[in-house]
Amino acid sequence: MTTMTHRLIEASGNPFALTHLDSLESEAVHIFREVAGEFEKPVILFSGGKDSIVMLHLALKAFAPAPVPFVLLHVDTGHNFREAIDYRDRTVAQHNLRLHVASVQDYIDAGRLKERPDGTRNPLQTVPLTEAIQQHRFDAVFGGGRRDEEKARAKERVFSLRDEFSQWDPRRQRPELWQLYNGRHAPGEHVRVFPLSNWTELDVWQYIAREKIELPEIYFAHERNVFLRDGMWLTAGAWGGPRDGERVEKRLVRYRTVGDMSCTGAVDSDATTLDAVIAEIALSRLTERGATRADDKLSEAAMEDRKREGYF
């Protein structure tokens, strides 16, 4: 049954119909259970960002009262927001989960990766991610990507096959009619799985409000020292900002998405509550990545190029 059909049923007042959020939750839970039954060694990418937080919440629901049968993986750029890292560690301890951390800094220290002149480490995540997948032999990797975020992600299926080099080929996408997912893969290949594919940013926030999910405080309006670069408010840090001529000022801001500090911008906002954030997003005409992610503005095909190399 399509999402539009669910909305029409809701409008008709059918007391037995699933709500829109119930439908999305049910689909995601089905995906988690399908992967658990079909794959040998799945892993969940968990960064302490809102999408990975919702994804873990859904996984906990899918298998309750049993523990989540997957480990977690975080590719740490070394330039992550402290609020997200603290949340990550608290959550892992709270639910007695096992976390693998692949550190970009370790690769730089070992001479296997080189710092970029612009200080951005997001593109450097690909090698630690793909090598962690190969080292631990993960055959299914859950990510929090959504189709509404960016046009390259809109092209991707829920089950996305990656070759032995973790590369994505759009021509190898498989049909997923009637929520039938094909996880078949050759030795050395793996499947990236996106339980939130059909969610929007607004859906995510409405679900967070409904489920009363705790988030890092960085997602709500707060005073922060920021500087303006390429139309975005960035946080000063050891990654290389600000440059000469870039003035730091204290502003009331919040973050719509949380990634590497060097390429994730804040937005001016006075939204300090969930209801205020939801109202703000409902009025926005820019996607969260389009508004606040500098790495997606490098070229028209920036995200697709990174995905072809093995990035999420």
Rank of each mutant, 00 (worst) to 15 (best):
64 A>W: 05
65 P>H: 07
65 P>D: 10
66 A>L: 07
69 P>D: 15
71 V>H: 09
72 L>F: 04
72 L>W: 03
73 L>V: 12
74 H>V: 04
74 H>K: 05
74 H>P: 01
75 V>Q: 04
79 H>G: 05
80 N>A: 15
81 F>T: 01
81 F>A: 06
81 F>H: 08
82 R>Y: 07
82 R>M: 04
83 E>G: 03
83 E>C: 07
84 A>F: 14
86 D>P: 03
89 D>W: 03
89 D>Q: 12
91 T>N: 04
92 V>M: 01
95 H>I: 05
96 N>D: 15
96 N>I: 02
97 L>A: 05
97 L>S: 04
98 R>G: 04
99 L>N: 05
101 V>T: 13
103 S>K: 14
106 D>G: 10
108 I>K: 00
108 I>E: 02
110 A>I: 00
111 G>Y: 10
113 L>Y: 03
113 L>Q: 06
114 K>R: 13
114 K>F: 07
117 P>G: 11
117 P>Q: 10
117 P>N: 08
118 D>H: 10
118 D>V: 15
119 G>I: 11
119 G>E: 08
119 G>V: 11
119 G>S: 10
119 G>N: 08
121 R>N: 05
122 N>P: 00
124 L>H: 08
125 Q>T: 12
125 Q>N: 06
128 P>C: 11
130 T>C: 03
130 T>Y: 05
130 T>P: 01
131 E>K: 09
132 A>H: 02
133 I>D: 01
134 Q>K: 12
134 Q>M: 06
135 Q>W: 07
137 R>F: 03
139 D>F: 05
139 D>H: 05
141 V>T: 07
141 V>I: 09
142 F>S: 01
142 F>D: 01
142 F>Q: 04
142 F>Y: 02
143 G>N: 13
146 R>H: 02
147 R>P: 00
147 R>M: 08
149 E>R: 02
149 E>S: 04
149 E>P: 00
149 E>D: 02
149 E>L: 03
150 E>I: 06
150 E>N: 10
151 K>S: 11
151 K>A: 11
151 K>V: 08
154 A>S: 04
155 K>T: 10
155 K>E: 12
157 R>G: 09
157 R>I: 07
159 F>M: 03
159 F>W: 11
160 S>F: 05
161 L>D: 02
163 D>L: 08
164 E>K: 13
165 F>D: 09
167 Q>S: 14
167 Q>H: 10
168 W>F: 03
170 P>F: 03
170 P>C: 12
170 P>G: 11
172 R>S: 09
172 R>F: 13
172 R>N: 12
173 Q>W: 13
177 L>S: 09
178 W>E: 12
179 Q>S: 14
179 Q>K: 15
181 Y>L: 15
182 N>L: 14
182 N>W: 15
183 G>D: 13
184 R>T: 13
186 A>R: 15
186 A>M: 13
186 A>H: 14
186 A>S: 13
189 E>I: 14
189 E>W: 14
